[in-house]
Nucleic acid binder design. Structure first.
Lengths: 225, 225
DNA sequence: GCATTTGTCTACCACTCGGTAGACGAGTGT
DNA sequence: ACACTCGTCTACCGAGTGGTAGACAAATGC
């Protein structure tokens, strides 16, 4: 009755993980069922026993990623009370969600390119609650003169999501080619790019630094510089 | 001797155009030679007569796009004299280049996802002169206190290029889902998103609006709003 | 006028794709 | 002990892939 030690649900999960990775790396058409099965260590018909078709597997991969999103973000948001805290929580947690596994960003990006008509309502439904919070907050800030008057909240939010998703999708590429920092290891370079994503998102909002929502720009971890 | 009225170079060009469009829409593996040939109105072997292999066709498509870039941007840059004018010219012209044909952005994005190791040096070589101008200008602005001290010029430029390329690649999708503006037609929505791209790129740079390089934010075409 | 080049075509190739049929063995319930 | 389910396998299928061989017709060169 209980799941045997290394049977169904375990293999299904492995398939899902490798499928996510390979779809993200090579695209849906570029990653074959044989490749995925080989990565898992089984044969293709065994894979099709767990997921009846490649397209169904694709849907499950997406579904799983969005489920992760839905269980991660609300938890983080609960702690936030003020509008500013909510805004910051959504922004940082969105970045963290994708940075934690850049394949999510690459997968999402590829699907948006390959199947925009299918993905648009799907994504819209999943981000709508959070974009609404951010839009309301921006609108309020705009009325109070804290946020630049030219900003259309929805357009801003759309482009910031795009900035984050695409920025994370390209993180490895970016981190590989930043020579100037003096930080030779990949991880530090990645960290700087992540910080830049958040910085741009904040900076794009405000008309006057004295009126910024956060008291001061997040200083580098060592305040010497 | 001269090219016949509708022969070789003409067909080759048509192949290149349709290949660009289909690679951008469906990816390299997702667009078959038969599809491309059918779009042109010929059969597959005829296509392979003009381009000896699919991979060679891909290289030529990329090469053509980068050639367009190389002949477009320097022309625009020649008119600019001051550092600020150069900066503005590069930024706006980069946006215009991709907006003029969003397939360029989609193609570039897909290739960066599919073949990052091949694309990184290729892109780097083509954008290096322009990013250097922008980086130098930002560095100068930073020393003069006009630009935020946290900004690493190279990281900023990398993310702004990413913002523009990915933003334009998603333009149609974004324009389709912006309900709030009251501008029902697609073109107006696109224009607003393009404007947002440039606005973010500028806003992310400056620490104080009084010190912004452009005297004031570009107001909407009708100054009423 | 005739040979040659140019560009397209039909027919075919080996290969890979997603998906199916059915054998087989290990457990499991009774 | 036996029937049955579960999960995997080998073998195969039709369809579609990139690419090739060679026939053929229209220009082109001389």
């Amino acid at each position: 009755m209980a799941t045997a030690r290394s049977t169904r649900s375990d293999v299904s999960k492995q398939i899902l993980e490798h499928a996510t990775r390979l779809f993200a790396a090579h695209g849906f058409v570029g990653a074959s069922l044989r490749d995925i099965a080989k990565a898992v260590g089984i044969r293709k018909p065994s894979l099709l026993y767990h997921y009846p078709s490649k397209d169904e597997l694709r849907r499950r991969v997406l579904e799983q990623m969005l489920a992760h999103w839905n269980e991660t973000v609300p938890r983080l948001l609960k702690a936030a009370t003020s509008g500013q805290e909510q805004f910051e929580a959504i922004a940082t947690e969105t970045v963290n969600f994708f940075v934690a596994d850049p394949d999510r960003a690459r997968l999402l990006l590829r699907e948006m390119l390959d199947r925009p008509d299918e993905m648009r309502p799907l994504v819209e439904a999943h981000v709508q609650p959070w974009t609404k919070i951010m839009c309301d907050y921006i609108t309020k800030g705009r009325e109070q003169g804290r946020v630049h008057a030219d900003i259309d909240p929805e357009i801003y939010v759309a482009h910031m999501i795009n900035l984050v998703v695409c920025g994370v999708a390209m993180l490895d590429t970016f981190a590989a080619l930043t020579p100037g920092g003096g930080a030779p290891d990949q991880h530090a370079a990645t960290q700087r790019h992540v910080k830049e994503l958040l910085r741009v998102a904040r900076a794009a909002l405000f008309i006057d630094p004295a009126l910024r929502l956060d008291a001061e720009f997040e200083s580098p971890s060592s305040p010497s510089k």
